[in-house]
Lab assay of single mutants.
Amino acid sequence: MSIQHFRVALIPFFAAFCLPVFAHPETLVKVKDAEDQLGARVGYIELDLNSGKILESFRPEERFPMMSTFKVLLCGAVLSRVDAGQEQLGRRIHYSQNDLVEYSPVTEKHLTDGMTVRELCSAAITMSDNTAANLLLTTIGGPKELTAFLHNMGDHVTRLDRWEPELNEAIPNDERDTTMPAAMATTLRKLLTGELLTLASRQQLIDWMEADKVAGPLLRSALPAGWFIADKSGAGERGSRGIIAALGPDGKPSRIVVIYTTGSQATMDERNRQIAEIGASLIKHW
């Protein structure tokens, strides 16, 4: 067993022997301040990774656009098919120029040779490549099948209805392509620590998230040296922004954090800054 596999296998073990965790309302004060600064709703939840206990939450059962955070769930569904012998990570998928959609920095470079399922998941999570996500959605049967996968996990809230990039439209009061912070946090925890996926697939999923290259201005910008984070960000229309993450000190994750916002007129930089400040408060009061 590799060191990384050992780390993920012992996530519940280490967490069980940690000192009790206590909620700190100071972080919620910052979440509410972010709402004021952005002029928009902000949803927040913080779960203990081992027990699933909610440590703090704000608007945990209000719907927010998922945006690209759905790509972690998508690759979880792909990995479940791999575990069941219905898919192979090494299978190569070929596609054409007509398949390319807006923001496809990886797939646009491989029109000639195609990409493997493993490479597509890596591109979808680490670079948020939209064509990679659409190609992977095709392998599982489309958005409705991802929703069905989530329902089978016990998540009857999260739903995907459309493809990239239309799913980022974020129309107010439109339930399409949305989740709730509580539902997303619980589902992410199941994917990373539950028995739904094999140990190898859980490790692969967290490795992809740990290698995320496009979430630097968010929670990662607030992390002290030595902290662990595996995350996936999302951005959408109407001032929408979000991030889902597993993080913790001492090089291992111990909490799940989900943050979503929508309806702001603020710039992307300002949305990023507010999420980073929430992260800084979380870490300060850990």
Rank of each mutant, 00 (worst) to 15 (best):
H24R: 05
P25D: 03
E26Y: 07
E26R: 03
E26W: 09
T27V: 05
L28N: 05
K30C: 13
V31A: 09
K32H: 07
D33L: 14
D36I: 12
D36S: 12
Q37A: 11
Q37T: 10
L38D: 03
R41P: 12
R41T: 10
R41A: 11
Y44F: 10
I45R: 09
E46N: 04
D48M: 07
D48G: 05
L49Y: 01
K53R: 09
E56Y: 04
S57Y: 08
S57G: 02
F58K: 03
R59T: 04
R59G: 04
R59M: 07
P60Q: 07
P60A: 04
E61L: 07
E61I: 02
E62A: 12
E62F: 10
R63G: 08
R63E: 05
M67D: 03
T69Y: 09
T69E: 02
T69A: 09
K71N: 15
V72A: 03
L73F: 03
L74I: 08
L74F: 01
C75H: 00
R81V: 06
V82W: 05
D83S: 02
D83H: 05
A84E: 11
A84M: 06
G85R: 07
E87G: 03
E87C: 05
L89D: 05
L89C: 02
G90W: 11
G90E: 07
I93W: 07
I93F: 01
I93M: 00
H94C: 01
H94V: 10
Y95D: 15
S96Q: 04
S96C: 01
D99H: 11
L100Q: 02
Y103D: 14
S104N: 00
S104A: 02
P105T: 03
V106Q: 09
T107R: 02
E108K: 10
E108A: 07
E108L: 08
K109P: 02
K109V: 06
H110A: 03
L111S: 06
L111H: 05
D113W: 02
D113L: 04
D113R: 07
T116E: 06
V117H: 05
V117E: 12
V117C: 01
E119I: 04
L120I: 05
C121A: 00
C121N: 00
S122A: 11
S122I: 12
A124P: 04
T126I: 14
T126W: 03
M127L: 11
D129R: 01
N130Q: 15
A132K: 00
N134Y: 04
N134M: 03
N134C: 03
L137N: 03
T138R: 13
T139E: 13
T139P: 03
T139A: 09
T139S: 12
I140V: 09
G142K: 02
G142H: 00
G142P: 01
P143R: 02
K144Y: 02
K144M: 05
E145Q: 15
E145G: 15
E145D: 10
L146T: 02
T147A: 06
A148F: 02
A148K: 03
F149M: 10
H151D: 02
N152V: 13
N152M: 12
N152L: 11
M153N: 05
M153T: 04
M153G: 04
D155L: 11
D155S: 09
D155A: 09
H156G: 09
H156E: 13
V157M: 14
T158W: 15
R162C: 00
R162A: 00
R162K: 00
W163E: 10
E164I: 11
E164Q: 01
P165M: 02
P165K: 01
L167N: 00
L167I: 02
N168W: 09
E169R: 00
E169V: 00
A170P: 00
A170T: 00
I171K: 01
I171P: 00
N173W: 10
D174I: 02
E175N: 08
E175S: 04
R176Y: 03
R176W: 07
R176F: 00
R176E: 00
D177L: 08
T179I: 00
T179K: 03
M180S: 13
M180G: 14
M180T: 11
P181E: 04
P181I: 01
A183L: 11
A185D: 12
A185L: 12
A185C: 11
R189A: 13
R189Q: 04
K190S: 14
K190C: 15
L191I: 03
L192Y: 13
T193A: 09
T193F: 13
G194W: 02
E195Q: 04
E195G: 09
L196A: 07
T198M: 04
T198I: 10
L199T: 09
L199M: 12
L199H: 11
A200W: 03
S201F: 01
S201Y: 02
S201W: 00
R202W: 02
R202I: 01
Q203G: 02
Q203W: 02
Q203P: 02
Q204C: 03
I206F: 01
D207A: 04
D207M: 06
D207R: 01
W208P: 05
W208L: 04
M209Q: 09
M209I: 14
E210F: 09
A211Q: 07
A211G: 08
A211T: 12
A211E: 06
V214R: 15
A215G: 14
P217L: 05
P217T: 10
L218Y: 14
S221M: 15
F228W: 14
F228G: 15
I229C: 11
S233R: 10
A235Q: 15
G236Y: 13
G236I: 12
E237R: 01
S240F: 14
R241S: 14
R241F: 15
R241C: 14
G242D: 10
G242Y: 06
I243Y: 15
I244L: 11
I244F: 12
A245G: 10
A246L: 09
G248Y: 04
P249K: 10
D250G: 10
D250I: 14
K252H: 04
P253F: 11
P253W: 04
S254R: 07
S254V: 06
I256F: 12
I256P: 10
I256S: 11
V257G: 14
V258K: 01
I259P: 09
I259Q: 13
Y260F: 13
T261Y: 14
T262I: 09
G263I: 00
G263N: 03
Q265E: 12
T267I: 13
M268E: 15
D269P: 13
E270M: 08
N272T: 13
R273V: 13
Q274N: 14
I275W: 11
I275D: 06
E277S: 07
E277P: 09
G279Y: 15
A280Y: 11
A280R: 12
A280T: 13
L282R: 08
L282H: 09
I283S: 11
H285E: 10
H285S: 02
W286M: 12
W286R: 06
